[in-house]
């Protein structure tokens, strides 16, 4: 029954992975602006129609 140790540690590992992802998300400033991204995600398609070459919406790298 020591499999429970394995299962528990796996489940906690998964939880911790998500937790770390959350911390990184906050650190990268993803929680600073909770409105603009919701509008931005609707734009990309219209850009493709017009001029595909400028479709370069790379994520800003965080310089701090």
């Amino acid at each position: 029954m020591s499999v429970i140790y394995l299962l528990l540690s796996l489940s906690i590992l998964v939880a911790v992975i998500f937790f770390v992802a959350f911390i990184f998300a906050v650190k990268n400033g993803q929680y600073d602006d909770s409105y603009t991204p919701s509008v931005r995600m609707l734009f990309e398609d219209e850009l493709v129609k017009e001029k595909p070459k400028t479709l370069k919406k790379s994520k800003l790298t965080n310089q701090e």
């Binding site: 602006d33 603009t36 919406k57």
Partner: peptide, 24 residues
């Protein structure tokens, strides 16, 4: 406003990236 300001690179190619924070 968000759309045009995030497409400034089309007006001037030297601007590589522009990102709007609507709230601020």
């Amino acid at each position: 406003c968000i759309w045009i300001l995030e497409n400034l690179n089309k007006l001037n190619s030297h601007i590589s990236n522009s990102q709007v924070d609507f709230g601020k």
